[in-house]
Simulated scan of single mutants.
Amino acid sequence: MRKLAHRVLLILAACWAATALAAEIVRFPDYPDPNKRFFRAALQLALDKSGQAYTLMPVLPQMLQGRSIARAMGAGGDIDVLWTMTTREREALLLPVRFPVDKGLLGWRIAIVRQDKAAQFANVQTVQDLRYFTAGQEHDWPDTRILRESGLPVMTASQYDSLFRMLVVKRFDYFPRGVAEAWAEVDARPELGLTVDRFIVLRYPAAEYFFVTPRKPYLAEHIWQGLLRAQADGSFDRLFHAHFDPLLQRARLSQRRVIELDNPMIDAGRLLPADSPWWYRPLPAAN
């Protein structure tokens, strides 16, 4: 009996080893992104639901979005999949998985400001009012063009971390961030004297997709199928709400003045319909 049990264990171990060896490595960039735990978990969920054998592996060190896209494009590149805001250019260079992983939250932008200027937007009602203030952004972010084409002044930096110091020394007035990014970034830098504006939210059509290297179209299809299955069985929504609900409660989007901006970098006809349940919509403010 013991010999039989030992043989069964050996067979199971061999099967596990064979499966592990057969699993394809999927490499993704390690962004300086406070929400990367969510996106990595969503990617892992999609791969698990795909029914295929994949193992995720981060590519270090941390890199800018533009660099990761270039490395995903190249024939000998070492990036298989990344997550970023969709644009026409990115959809032409890479294979988009047209599932808004962030439910469009990237298009809801709240501002990091200096504590001594916490009330600077108290009387801002329109985009024209906002033109008296200068925003800060990284030079290769799509947001930079979106803000500028709306007539809003923008100062750029080549390094993400530099933007916080530039705000502190008054190189610009506010740093628009995603609703799921702002507080984590402020909380991580208590010595800088920053806070999150409570009066306004910028909103423009946007979606954060997984983008796959053109070398692996089958991977894009597997991620798409996995996301659809996760959406259908409720596991994707559970993951989304577990990560974002505390941040959305803190953001109080329904109590802010919404300043609508156009997004010239997307083809709106390729986004899901506005009434799709895959988009996030704030609940109306309670009376």
Rank of each mutant, 00 (worst) to 15 (best):
K3N: 11
L4P: 00
H6W: 14
L9S: 11
L12I: 11
L12W: 09
A13C: 13
A14M: 10
C15F: 09
W16T: 06
A18P: 00
T19W: 14
A22F: 08
A23H: 08
E24K: 14
I25A: 12
R27F: 09
K36H: 13
F38G: 06
D48Y: 04
K49P: 04
K49I: 12
M57I: 02
M63Q: 14
L64R: 12
G74V: 04
G76T: 12
G76V: 06
G77K: 00
V81Y: 05
M85W: 05
T86C: 06
R88F: 03
V97C: 08
V97I: 09
R98A: 15
R98Q: 12
R98G: 07
R98L: 13
F99Q: 12
F99S: 04
F99R: 11
V101N: 00
V101Q: 03
D102Q: 01
G104K: 02
W108T: 08
R109D: 10
I110C: 07
A111K: 00
I112G: 06
R114P: 01
R114G: 00
A119E: 14
V124M: 02
T126E: 01
V127F: 02
Y132G: 14
T134I: 12
T134L: 10
W141A: 14
P142V: 11
D143H: 04
R145L: 01
E149W: 08
L152H: 07
L152K: 06
P153W: 06
T156K: 08
A157K: 12
A157T: 15
Y160S: 09
S162T: 13
K170A: 08
K170V: 00
P176W: 08
P176V: 13
R177L: 12
V179P: 09
A180K: 00
E181D: 08
W183I: 06
W183V: 07
E185I: 03
E185Q: 11
R189N: 06
E191I: 00
L192D: 02
G193T: 02
G193M: 04
G193L: 07
L194K: 07
V196D: 09
D197M: 10
D197F: 12
D197P: 07
F199S: 13
R203D: 10
A206M: 09
A207F: 03
A207M: 03
E208G: 00
F211V: 07
Y218F: 09
W224A: 14
W224D: 15
L227C: 06
L228R: 13
D233A: 05
F236L: 10
R238Q: 15
F240R: 05
H241L: 14
A242I: 03
R250V: 10
R250D: 11
R252F: 01
L253E: 01
E260V: 00
L261K: 02
L261C: 03
M265L: 15
A268M: 04
R270F: 01
L271H: 03
A274I: 05
W279M: 06
R281W: 03
L283G: 05
P284T: 10
N287L: 14
N287R: 09
